[in-house]
């Protein structure tokens, strides 16, 4: 349908009507603001999605503080810290990419998007080694939680709850990173094709907002799970 309307408008010689503007919006600004507001609304649904897990974490931590403090030392703060820095860096580069898109700097945009993409991949690789490391000691979520060897002392009541919450929280967070990678690949290809200019960079802006939120979630996960 939008194609049909666009055709009609081309016939009538409306060449001040940019290609990215959909027919039901009046101006590009209206479209940009609407998309951005939609994205923010989506972001708070993400926050509320994660809030369920934060509430579960808090409730069990209040009930069994010593267990949660004890077993959290099983998680390696070095790897967690590394991943924090990696995600912060990717957040920074994505902000830079928007900066360059606004300045019509094609090269800066693409380079920063590629770095972001790399950081996201590094994050998942580190996560993979963390997970497999834990699995090899029998630290699984739920009923399968049976630490053995040196870790056998951690086979205490409610430690399973901690790791269940850990795996679900980081798992869903990791899933968001994975989705982010997919979107960044698409955005990067479009950026290389030169789709984005200072007049139209909405997808970069929206993906950036999403990515910052993924970063913020991790900012809270890191101390709660690894540090305290």
């Amino acid at each position: 349908m939008s194609e049909a309307v666009a055709t009609a408008e081309q016939i009538h010689g409306h060449d001040d009507h940019p290609a990215h503007l959909q027919h039901h919006f009046v101006t590009s600004d209206q479209q940009f603001e609407a998309s951005k507001m939609g994205m923010w609304l989506f972001l708070i649904t993400e926050i509320l999605l994660f809030s369920g897990m934060f509430v579960a974490y808090t409730v069990y931590r209040v009930w069994h503080p010593e267990v949660f403090q004890g077993v959290s030392s099983l998680l390696d703060w070095r790897l967690g810290g590394l991943n924090t820095i990696v995600l912060l860096a990717s957040s920074f580069t994505v902000a830079m990419s928007i900066h360059f898109a606004q300045k019509n700097n094609q090269k800066g945009l693409v380079i920063n998007l590629v770095i972001t993409l790399l950081c996201a991949c590094i994050f998942l690789v580190v996560k993979y080694f963390e997970y497999t490391g834990k699995f090899s000691h029998g630290i699984f979520p739920g009923i399968a939680y049976h630490p053995h060897g040196d870790y056998a002392v951690y086979d205490i009541p409610y430690a399973g709850q901690f790791f269940s919450i850990y795996y679900i929280m980081t798992g869903i967070h990791g899933f968001h990173v994975l989705v982010g990678i997919g979107v960044f690949i698409w955005i990067t290809i479009r950026a290389i094709k030169g789709d984005f200019t200072s007049a139209y960079y909405t997808p970069v802006e929206l993906t950036g907002l999403y990515w910052h939120l993924v970063d913020i979630i991790w900012i809270f996960l890191f101390p709660l799970l690894y540090l305290i």
Binding site: M53, A56, Q161, S164, I168
Partner: peptide, 12 residues
């Protein structure tokens, strides 16, 4: 979480 409770028996 309910799905996980059933699938992995996470005990929440």
């Amino acid at each position: 979480l309910l799905f996980m409770e059933k699938a992995l028996q996470i005990g929440i």
